[in-house]
Design a protein around this nucleic acid. Structure first.
Lengths: 141, 141
DNA sequence: GTACGTGCAAACAGTTTGCATCATG
DNA sequence: CATGATGCAAACTGTTTGCACGTAC
């Protein structure tokens, strides 16, 4: 979604496009890896666009509610976020340097989910799949 | 692994089998779902075997180091643990009642991992796959 | 009697909340 | 000028650490 469309959508729902909000969305657009609140606070600081961490947390919650972001969890205690709307994918995280690569699995887990739903009698809404290991860079050193 | 073998293994490494340690291992053996430090503190309390939460955290770290437990992450901010050594499996977590079911996928992700390793030039050591949704119980209410 | 095990207090990281204030459509 | 956005302080949760004391091989 481009910026103008996003602004229009938010205004339609009674919300505003603030400097921080615009900057955060742009940052997510420019960054491939999922970002934590801490990451963003650092990026904001570097851009001399300092704002309170409370604002960052609130902004992240807000953008998830507006389905502009989605939460991603690498199990290291910090919540991470990435732009929603892109192709569904998974991640490979280097245990050493923490670099993140997007992973597009050939076989679809969707099919597995349908089978699981039958077995469990449940409704599966989402799944989270991350791979951990040593990336090319760290492995060849 | 049975208790006697575990005790022998630990003693061989210079460690002891304490009351809390034995109780925790037994609890994990008796429980199907992964348990958090908080869960365990509650269970200990009910068993009138109260001990400091620091001990619980240290015990969990220790048991993971000794490869008797493995960590599991549901992305809700609390680390969970389950007995290691069992068959590799995944989980289905009900978003409503938080009940956990073990999931044994038919197709192996191992094969996917080999392909991924080639693509990324990386070494994949592990993956984490959890499904989220509404369980049978909660769905039919 | 030398490690291991434990308890307690304190620190720590990540996050949330209440309240007052600011500022934009 | 009403409501959304922000800042600040404080609380809160999950977890870790330092230190002293206890205790089992």
């Amino acid at each position: 979604m481009n910026l103008a469309t996003t602004i229009h959508m938010l205004q339609g729902r009674g919300f505003r496009m603030t400097t921080v909000r615009r900057f955060l969305l742009q940052t997510f657009k420019d960054t491939k890896a999922p970002l934590s609140a801490n990451d963003l606070i650092g990026i904001l600081k570097k851009a001399h666009l300092e704002c309170n961490r409370t604002t960052v947390y609130r902004e992240l919650t807000f953008l998830v509610e507006q389905t502009l972001l989605r939460a991603v969890d690498f199990g290291d205690g910090a919540k991470r976020y990435e732009l929603a709307g892109g192709e569904h994918h998974h991640h490979f995280i280097c245990s050493n340097c923490k670099a993140v690569s997007d992973v597009n699995l050939k076989n679809d887990l969707e099919q597995q989910e349908r089978i699981l739903e039958k077995i469990l009698g449940a409704t599966i809404e989402s799944h989270s799949l991350e791979f951990f290991g040593i990336c090319k860079n760290c492995g060849t050193k």
